[in-house]
Design a binder for these strands. Structure first.
Lengths: 103, 103
DNA sequence: CGGCATCCTTACAGATACTG
DNA sequence: CAGTATCTGTAAGGATGCCG
């Protein structure tokens, strides 16, 4: 009961899932790449969300020593375990849309 | 990709999952019962959330012709299909808590 | 009992500009 | 490139009181 709330806290907001999906799909992804992948997000939001995901150990931030510097984000093993949930939510979302919208 | 967002929209906020869990556990539940089950929620919020859940056809509101009137909330078949997701989220939440808090 | 109306405070989030 | 800083509007959400 508290557990389910913990999960929702980690995934809350509009952006977490799209961000994770982006990184997951490309395996590793840079800040500006994600900024383009996730439609409508601002750099301010992306920055904040990435920080939260990092704190929750779902992603890893790696600074590349280039000029100018680039930063790569990858999923941790723990982050990858979200795949199941994302799939579940996707399936349910499709069913739900059929039920509600598709009448 | 949009599908997963649809799901999150339906389950957004702090309260939807706890409310559904309450109704699910007791099978049917009254307004004031849920108010007690879900810790910290205000009647204003509960009222709003229940409406949204009803619009999304996850729960059904039934007025009992008693004096004073009582109102019962039950899950629809569609609402019951959330059980899997809730279970997944619960499992993941437990793992997550072990990983993050329990170090 | 089961809400709705009102007021009010805070958190969320967009736009824009700026920095190392 | 990868963010921070600031400013601001909106909406979420709590407290309280009232009503059928």
């Amino acid at each position: 009961m508290r557990a389910v709330q913990d999960s929702m806290d980690v995934l809350n907001g509009k952006w977490k899932i799209p961000i994770i999906s982006s990184i997951c799909y490309y395996n590793k992804r840079r800040f500006s790449d994600i900024l383009h992948d996730v439609e409508g997000i601002s750099n301010r939001m992306l920055s904040k969300e990435l920080k939260e995901l990092e704190i929750n150990q779902l992603i890893v931030r790696t600074i590349q020593d280039t000029q100018p510097i680039t930063v790569e984000y990858t999923l941790t093993d723990h982050g990858k375990t979200l795949q199941t949930i994302i799939n579940n939510l996707t399936d349910w979302g499709i069913q739900h849309r059929k039920k509600i919208v598709g009448r």
